[in-house]
Simulated scan of single mutants.
Amino acid sequence: RGVRDRLRPVLMTACITALGMIPLLLATGPGSEIQRPLAIVVTGGLVTSTALTLLLLPLLFERFGTARSQRASIRTPAGSSVE
């Protein structure tokens, strides 16, 4: 459910940032020897973090969050609440 709620904002942020990096990636003038590697690293990190946020993180939450909630329900006696 969290991925569905956050998909649009995460993708909008990633796409706008990637579009902002295009001039740095295509620069050939003075200073481009520093700008281009920086833009490559930022773009790669952006793609990686977006993929991890949308794919890996929900899988980890599903895997370990489910186990934690099951353990909590086993330990809690019926009729009492967990704070």
Rank of each mutant, 00 (worst) to 15 (best):
I22R: 03
I22H: 01
P23F: 01
L24D: 14
L24G: 15
L24V: 13
L24F: 15
L24A: 15
L25G: 02
L25K: 01
L25E: 00
L26Q: 08
L26C: 07
L26E: 07
A27P: 01
T28D: 14
T28H: 12
T28V: 13
T28L: 12
T28Q: 15
G29L: 07
G29K: 00
P30R: 10
P30V: 15
G31V: 12
S32T: 03
E33R: 10
E33Q: 15
I34S: 09
I34C: 09
Q35F: 12
Q35I: 10
Q35P: 08
R36D: 05
R36G: 04
R36I: 15
R36Y: 10
R36P: 03
P37L: 07
P37E: 01
L38I: 14
L38K: 13
L38Y: 10
A39Y: 00
A39H: 03
I40M: 07
I40P: 05
I40E: 11
V41M: 07
V41R: 09
V42R: 06
T43G: 08
T43E: 07
G44C: 08
G45V: 03
G45N: 13
V47G: 03
V47H: 05
T48I: 12
S49M: 10
S49G: 10
S49R: 06
T50Q: 00
A51Y: 06
L52P: 01
L52C: 06
L52M: 11
T53S: 05
T53Y: 05
L54F: 00
L54I: 01
L56Q: 05
L56C: 04
L56M: 06
L56W: 03
L57D: 00
P58C: 00
P58T: 00
P58R: 02
P58L: 02
L59I: 06
L60M: 09
E62F: 08
E62K: 09
E62I: 10
R63E: 06
R63S: 09
R63N: 08
R63C: 06
F64R: 06
G65L: 01
G65H: 02
G65E: 00
G65N: 00
T66S: 12
A67Q: 09
A67V: 08
A67S: 09
A67W: 12
A67D: 05
R68P: 03
R68D: 09
R68F: 09
S69V: 09
S69M: 12
S69E: 13
S69G: 06
S69W: 11
S69I: 09
Q70M: 12
Q70A: 11
R71A: 13
R71N: 11
R71Q: 12
A72P: 02
A72I: 08
A72N: 11
S73N: 12
S73L: 10
I74Y: 12
I74H: 15
I74G: 07
R75H: 10
T76W: 04
P77G: 08
P77D: 02
P77W: 04
A78E: 13
A78Q: 12
G79L: 04
G79F: 02
G79V: 05
G79N: 00
G79S: 02
S80I: 07
S80F: 08
V82R: 14
V82T: 13
E83D: 15
E83P: 11
